[in-house]
Design a binder for these strands. Structure first.
Lengths: 237, 237
DNA sequence: CCAAAAGTGTTGACCGTACACCCATGA
DNA sequence: TCATGGGTGTACGGTCAACACTTTTGG
């Protein structure tokens, strides 16, 4: 193993210039039958007062993944959030302040896990993906790419479980997929395919918040799910 | 539009530290019925003499995409190569020389377009993906991810056309897909699905380099292909 | 009693896969 | 003439998509 020492720079690469590296997080949540992203009002220059994604700069002593988790934690107070690197944006002029490259991450979280006051304190708010305001720099491009990513993700892993509460109903999950794909799904086919995967635990309790009849609650059986993941599976709709 | 000035730094972000940003290119080619990557022997410290991907540092005045194209061009002499950003690697200790984050790109090129002497001059060589030597840092991880990426890519676009000469035979194309997926394919089914896409132009000439009977040459019909791309398509095998 | 959402099966079309033989030719 | 790779068609099974009615119950 080569001996590394993070506090003392070597001279190997001294001919090369360093660049500012930022993180931007596209944070998705699901509420009111809509897929939403968390946006905030920038409180520093440049572009102060405009709307942007949650972001920050990468520090010397942290990996990209850790930086993303830290930034997410600073804003939401949450840890252990599903976080996935999306793409790195590196046009010269993307940030008018200075040359900054930005590594975009996307995150999925359960809106109800969030302390709403805490979020509002940071002047953040949830925006439906179909109705986003104008954003700074290339942040709209990032969101578009993130949406395409989770659409693909939704086929390979039941991402619904990251976005819904632990106990959820099948109609709720369907609404989520409809929000992700932005189209209506047939409830009979959806149910059939979902249950065929055999990764749900059914409960006797019903959730009556959205209908008089009430819908059965389910949760996600992690054991069965992990087994299925290894074998590889698709959940096409 | 915000006025930008790349030569004068603003003070907005002065509290933040800059980081070295590198590019590494996973360059794929196809020859002798095998998918190959272009590797070279590092001629600078650290890890001098060891085998690595083609890489370099991003300069202040170039975008990431341009940096990748430049680095590819410096080594191969080729321009306008299919190049796609793969992933950004940002562990603190990934490079023992210093803290460097690396944006990996993958490229597809026709081996026969390359000047072999030029490549050898840079002490580069093509390695079959099934038989790579040990590589520095996280470069093996990068290659693994790149392979998964082109396996997926191969389903959404006929990437064969980037890797094969302009005129090619169907058995050649099949060999390529077999190399990408690392498994045998049924020639009848392959042919059927391929021709069903209706994106090939057939020629009367035959290529007799690999059989006595000879195989018909085809080329790729860009018009039909672009039309198909818009509608979206899958080429599952 | 009625509005509103939950729950339930069947069928036809299409697609993917498996599979075997003849052809053309250079050596 | 024979060895080698090129070229061709069919049948089966599984999966996806389309489709409509009954159930429950709060208001």
């Amino acid at each position: 193993m080569v001996q590394t020492n993070r506090n003392k720079k070597t001279q190997y690469y001294k001919a090369h210039k360093e660049i500012l590296v930022a993180i931007d997080c596209i944070i998705f949540g699901f509420s009111d039958n809509d897929l939403k992203v968390l946006l905030l009002k920038r409180d520093f220059e440049p572009a102060k007062g405009q709307i942007s994604l949650i972001g920050g700069f990468v520090r010397q002593e942290e990996s990209l993944d850790n930086a993303a988790a830290r930034i997410l934690h600073e804003l939401t107070g949450l840890k252990d959030i599903y976080l996935e690197q999306l793409y790195t944006y590196g046009s010269i002029d993307r940030d008018p302040g200075e040359r900054v490259i930005s590594v975009a991450y996307c995150a999925l979280l359960k809106i109800q896990d969030l302390d709403h006051e805490y979020v509002r304190m940071h002047s953040a708010r949830w925006c439906p993906i179909s109705d986003c305001p104008e954003l700074i720099f290339d942040h709209e491009t990032m969101i578009e790419k993130a949406i395409r990513r989770i659409q693909r993700r939704a086929k390979n892993r039941p991402i619904g479980f990251e976005l819904l509460p632990e106990h959820f109903t099948i109609p709720q999950l369907q609404k989520l997929y409809e929000a992700i794909y932005q189209r209506k799904l047939d409830s009979r086919n959806f149910r059939k395919k979902l249950l065929a995967m055999n990764i749900l635990k059914k409960y006797d309790k019903k959730d009556k918040s959205s209908s008089k009849k009430g819908a059965y609650l389910y949760s996600f059986d992690k054991k069965k799910y992990n087994k299925l993941l290894k074998d590889g599976f698709h959940f096409d709709l």
